[in-house]
């Protein structure tokens, strides 16, 4: 028989609704326990919160500034407001600032919040210089994934997944400063020359397709990537004895991507290079298509 140790409860008020929640919980947990929600971008359920994107800000009574819900711990008697005009202004602006500085067209969360908060990035267009400029070419330096840094919103999720909270490779970090900050393996090394082990856990947590499997990148370019035509099939990884659960994303009866379910207690969504990328043999020797080793889906030389 196991005996659960109950953490003492703390009472907080979320939009006038009282919530009892274990101490050391975050405001985000309290808000969700109250049946409400706030937008999040840098927050990821399997990673420690870092509170940098600032889209989850809420009003806390007595606080001079707004407070990031993802990282702030509850305190007894805290009164939280999640939907005030001040909060909404900040969220809308954060989304606009992202939209005006990087390409968020493949970032579904940013798109959703933009619609929800009525973001109008175009009002910055007439005079904004940085961000509305020619795109830099995506970095294609290996066969497994592509870095399209003009889509990067600097949520640090990939850095954390690569580091001690995931793979422990520490192959990438944030380099530079301010608007010049970027994800970098060090001296702008090509990934095969870096500490990267190609587990792909960085792309698993990327919310914007700044890091994207090469198959998906190529199919997007060819106009054949279509999530509405995709099914997810759950199976077990065939490689080693751990038996990680895999989600095969299948389009037109062909595997186009492999992920792992976040809820799985063994993987928490993380895989190794074999599980994530070692599936092309399934289609070896069959008719050409996305992922076929025999014939790439885009003609060589277009990238």
């Amino acid at each position: 028989m196991t005996r659960e140790v109950q953490a003492p409860l703390v009472t907080v008020e979320v939009d006038d609704q009282r919530v009892e929640i274990p101490e050391a919980s975050t405001l985000l947990q309290a808000i969700r326990a109250a049946g409400k929600d706030v937008p999040t971008l840098c927050y990821h359920p399997v990673l420690e919160p870092i509170g940098v994107c600032r889209v989850c800000v809420v009003e806390v009574e007595g606080s001079r500034t707004l407070v990031p819900a993802c990282i702030r711990r509850v305190e007894p008697g805290m009164r939280v407001r999640t939907e005030t005009p001040r909060v909404e202004l900040s969220r809308r602006m954060v989304v606009e600032l992202l939209q005006t500085s990087v390409d968020t067209s493949l970032a579904p969360d940013v798109q959703r919040y933009a619609a929800e908060y009525g973001a109008r990035p175009e009002r910055w267009q007439p005079f904004a210089r940085e961000g509305f400029r020619t795109r830099r070419a995506p970095k294609v330096d290996n066969d497994l994934y592509v870095r399209d840094l003009d889509r990067c919103i600097l949520c640090y999720r990939c850095v954390r997944a690569c580091g001690e909270e995931g793979q422990s490779s520490f192959a990438i970090a944030v380099a530079g400063r301010g608007l010049g900050a970027r994800i970098d393996p060090g001296f702008d090394l090509p990934l095969p020359d870096s500490a990267c082990v190609f587990c792909g856990n960085c792309l698993a947590v990327c919310p914007t397709e700044a890091l994207v499997p090469k198959t998906q990148f190529e199919m997007r370019r060819a106009g054949t990537w279509d999530e509405r035509r995709q099914q997810v099939v759950t199976t077990t990884c065939p490689y080693c004895g751990v038996g990680c659960k895999l989600n095969l994303h299948v389009q037109d009866n062909r595997i186009v991507k492999v992920t792992a379910p976040l809820e799985d207690p063994i993987t928490r969504g993380f895989l190794c290079v074999k599980g994530r990328f070692g599936w092309t043999y399934v289609h070896a020797g069959t008719a050409s298509g996305p992922g076929s080793e025999a014939e790439p889906s885009t003609p060589a030389g277009t990238l």
Partner: peptide, 25 residues
């Protein structure tokens, strides 16, 4: 402020650039 922002949070990283552009305008 644009030059000295560390770049960690969005309001400052992009906001200081937009502020500079607005002042110039």
């Amino acid at each position: 402020f644009r030059d000295e922002s560390c770049g960690q949070c969005v309001p400052c990283r992009v906001g200081t650039q937009r502020q500079l552009e607005l002042v110039e305008e």
